[in-house]
C-alpha cells in the first residue's frame, strides 16, 4: 500500500482521488481556456485525458496542484479542496510528471532529485534515504541513484521523473504526455512501471494506443469542457466523436482488435 495515513483520518476513504466541479479559468491576457470542467476519478483508477492541442489539458493539470487558481469552480483531492492554506499537502497528494524530464530533474544527481520532494515535506536522514530507495525501486532504477540525470537515457530520465513524485507518496499521479519521445522499448518499460503502481493515475496524452493499453477509462477535453467520458475502447471506436475533436488513430490501428 501507499501508506497515506492522514488521508483517511481527515476525510474518510470514500472521497474520490480527484473531484473537479465547474472549473473555469481565463488567463490574465483574457484568453479563456476552461469553461466549466466536471470530472471525478475514484481511488485506484487509471484514466486517460485526451484532447487536441489547445483543448486546455495543460491548464487543467496546473489547477490540480494549485499552480493556477480557478476562476470559478472547485478542485478536491481526496476530499481536500485545492486552496492556498493547504497548498503543501495538496502538492504532496498530486504528483505531476511533466513532459520534458529535463525540466523535472533539476538536481545534480538522481538521488538528490528524488529526495527533493520528500525533503520539502520535512523528511530527513534514514527515513528520507528509505523513501528515495523505495521510489527508485518502484520504477526499476535502483542502481542509478548517484548518476547525474543528464547521463541517463531519455526513457530512464522519464522513469526517474516518475520516481521523484512517487517519493512524495501521492494520492494521484498526473502524467503529461508520458510516452512522448520514447522508443518502443522505453514505452513498454514505462507502461510496466505504471501498471505495477498502486496509485490513482491521470494520464494526459495524444498517444491513443498507449491510453488504451493503460487506462480502462478515458475523458475527452475539447474547447475547455469534458465532452466525453467512458470506456477508452468505446470512445476510440466512436468515429464521429473522434473526428469532431481531431483525435486520430495511428495508421492500421484498430482498437477492437486489441485484447482487453
Amino acid at each position: 500500500m501507499n501508506g497515506v495515513p492522514h488521508v483517511s483520518e481527515a476525510t474518510g476513504d470514500a472521497a474520490p482521488s480527484l473531484a473537479v466541479r465547474g472549473l473555469a479559468y481565463a488567463y490574465p491576457d483574457g484568453h479563456q481556456a476552461l469553461y466549466g470542467v466536471d470530472l471525478t476519478i475514484a481511488r485506484g483508477e487509471r484514466v486517460a485525458l485526451l484532447g487536441p492541442n489547445g483543448a486546455g489539458k495543460t491548464t487543467l493539470v496546473l489547477h490540480l496542484n494549485g499552480i493556477l487558481t480557478a476562476g470559478a469552480g472547485t478542485v478536491e483531492v481526496a476530499g481536500l479542496p485545492v486552496a492556498k492554506e493547504h497548498l503543501r499537502e495538496i502538492r504532496r497528494r498530486v504528483g505531476i510528471v511533466f513532459q520534458d524530464p529535463d525540466d523535472q530533474l533539476f538536481m545534480p544527481t538522481v538521488r538528490e532529485d528524488v529526495a527533493f520532494g520528500p525533503a520539502n515535506l520535512g523528511l530527513r536522514g534514514a527515513a528520507l534515504e528509505e523513501r528515495v530507495r523505495h521510489a527508485l525501486a518502484r520504477v526499476d532504477m535502483a542502481g542509478f541513484a548517484d548518476r547525474p540525470p543528464h547521463h541517463l537515457s531519455y526513457g530512464q530520465r522519464r522513469r526517474v521523473a516518475v520516481a521523484t513524485v512517487l517519493a512524495m507518496e501521492p494520492e494521484i499521479l498526473v502524467l503529461d504526455e508520458p510516452s512522448s519521445n520514447l522508443d518502443p522499448a522505453s514505452r513498454r518499460e514505462l507502461a510496466e512501471v505504471l501498471r505495477s503502481l498502486d496509485v490513482t493515475v491521470l494520464m494526459v496524452t495524444h498517444d491513443l494506443p498507449y491510453a488504451l493499453e493503460l487506462c480502462p477509462r478515458a475523458l475527452v477535453l475539447a474547447g475547455g469542457v469534458v465532452v466525453a467520458d467512458g470506456g477508452t475502447r468505446d470512445l476510440l471506436l466512436d468515429r464521429d466523436l473522434m473526428a469532431a475533436h481531431r483525435l486520430e488513430l495511428p495508421y492500421g490501428f484498430d482498437p477492437s482488435s486489441v485484447p482487453a
Binding site: R91, I96, F106, F116, N120
Partner: peptide, 14 residues
C-alpha cells in the same frame, strides 16, 4: 516543477 514538489524558496538540506 519545483513548486509542484513543495519548493518554497529554500533548498532542503538533502
Amino acid at each position: 516543477a519545483m513548486l509542484s514538489r513543495g519548493y518554497t524558496g529554500t533548498m532542503p538540506v538533502i
